[in-house]
């Protein structure tokens, strides 16, 4: 039973991983790509790790998988935030038909 649940989790995780990678290819600029990969790939990988926990049971390997998934959930958004900030500071423009860029406006305002 727990094997079946674990395999189901792994399949869901793989599907979300693939969606995230398609997003990485299809979306137009860095920030949108970052959105797709942070959400889909993080949750997909966490789902794979939870599947591993279900299959292995509460043994040494299972607890390690659980810790690893918690660690990923905590750190992946921080890495994404740092990358987005770095990209914006290094001067990557938003996609052409974006609506607004308050961050850019405020930075210019501060420099004046």
């Amino acid at each position: 039973m727990s094997n079946i649940v674990g395999y189901a989790c792994i399949v869901i995780g793989l599907v979300f991983d693939i969606f995230g990678c398609i997003g990485l290819i299809r979306l137009p600029d860095v920030y949108n790509r970052l959105q797709a990969t942070t959400k889909c790939v993080t949750l997909g990988t966490c789902s794979i790790l939870i599947g591993t926990l279900c299959i292995k049971g509460f043994t040494g390997a299972g607890t390690k998988a659980f810790l690893c998934s918690i660690f990923l959930i905590l750190t992946a958004p921080v890495a994404a935030h740092a990358l987005a900030r770095g990209a914006h500071i290094s001067g990557v423009k938003l996609w052409g038909s974006s609506v607004c860029d308050k961050y850019h406006q405020d930075k210019e305002h501060k420099q004046k």
Partner: peptide, 12 residues
């Protein structure tokens, strides 16, 4: 991501 129109409307 999967929709062919790519319905995004991004901004900060």
């Amino acid at each position: 991501v999967l929709s062919p129109h790519l319905p995004i409307n991004p901004g900060i």
